[in-house]
Computed example of a mutant assay.
Amino acid sequence: MLIQSVFAAAREVFSPALRRILWKSVGLTLALLALVWLGLTKLLDIFLTNHDLSASYPILDSFAFFLAGFGLFVALIYLLPAVSAIVAGYFLDDVAEVVESKDYPVDPPGRALPFGQALLYGIRFAGLSLLVNFAALFLLFIPGINIAAFFVANAYLLGREYFELAAGRFWSAEEVARLRHEHRGTVLAAGAVLAGLVLVPVLNLLVPIFGATMMVHLHKRLTRGRAAIPSGREGQASLQNR
């Protein structure tokens, strides 16, 4: 199921139907990373100015510019999972509607998540991802452990995030959690695919749209033949009547 979903996403991510969403996603991701870069350079400038280090040690100015550039590279790797969470939450419904209508036309369409709920999903996972990756950053200079910790943590976080976003269009929050636990091995493996992409320059910019497409396919395959439980109060009532 996972391999089929990966290949399906790889075929569709550059398709005409998703291309416009893809470029918007890449643009938003780059804009957010640019803000991180500007923030880093500003903080460095404030630090050097307040401590009057530039006048005493002019070489620090050059070092600051180098560090800012290196900071962008580090941000691209360590902050991209968090950025991906926000971007994916914003574009998930657009991607899901395209995939569902094209590949599953006879199935009932999913319900678009309310904007506030989708944004909350993204912010929640972004915050958690920042905490986890900040902890992983401390392991940066420990060979072997740093990459392993980064990979495992983000495999879990990305798998969980994207699955909940895709499944949330069809199921109540309780059912989403149950499905994720029931298929936790497959969801973790899907997250590992995304965590691997995060480590590849340029390709990591495709993670939000590729991940959303892949997880829509995976959710469909994992829940084939099941009747979806609506979210919200209807879903709560359905669960209570079981």
Results as ranks from 00 to 15, higher is better:
I21F: 05
L22G: 08
L22H: 01
W23K: 12
W23V: 11
W23A: 14
W23N: 12
S25C: 00
S25A: 06
V26L: 11
L28P: 02
L28D: 00
L28W: 09
T29S: 13
L30F: 04
L30W: 03
A31V: 02
A31Y: 03
L32D: 06
L32R: 03
L33I: 07
L33M: 11
A34Q: 04
A34I: 09
A34R: 07
A34G: 05
V36I: 04
L38T: 13
L38V: 03
L38W: 03
L38G: 03
G39M: 10
G39Y: 00
T41M: 06
T41S: 07
K42P: 09
K42D: 11
L43F: 00
D45N: 08
D45H: 07
I46Y: 00
I46N: 06
F47V: 08
F47Y: 08
F47W: 13
L48F: 02
T49C: 04
T49R: 14
D52A: 14
L53V: 01
L53C: 01
L53A: 04
L53W: 05
S54Y: 01
A55G: 04
A55N: 08
A55K: 09
Y57H: 12
Y57E: 06
Y57F: 14
P58T: 00
I59Q: 13
I59S: 07
L60R: 10
L60F: 12
D61Y: 08
D61Q: 15
S62I: 12
S62Q: 12
F63D: 14
F63C: 13
F63K: 14
F63G: 10
F63E: 15
A64P: 12
F65L: 15
F65R: 15
F66S: 09
F66C: 14
F66M: 13
L67K: 10
A68R: 14
G69K: 11
G71R: 07
L72Q: 07
F73S: 10
F73T: 06
F73R: 14
V74L: 14
A75K: 08
A75R: 09
A75S: 07
L76I: 04
I77P: 15
Y78K: 14
L79K: 15
L79M: 10
P81E: 12
P81L: 00
P81T: 03
P81M: 05
P81V: 02
A82Q: 00
A82M: 10
A82E: 02
V83M: 08
S84C: 07
S84E: 13
A85D: 06
A85S: 05
A85G: 05
A85I: 02
I86F: 02
V87Y: 03
V87P: 07
V87H: 05
V87L: 00
A88E: 04
A88W: 04
A88C: 10
G89T: 03
G89M: 09
F91E: 05
F91T: 05
F91G: 12
F91D: 01
D93M: 09
D94I: 00
D94T: 02
V95A: 09
V95Q: 08
V95N: 00
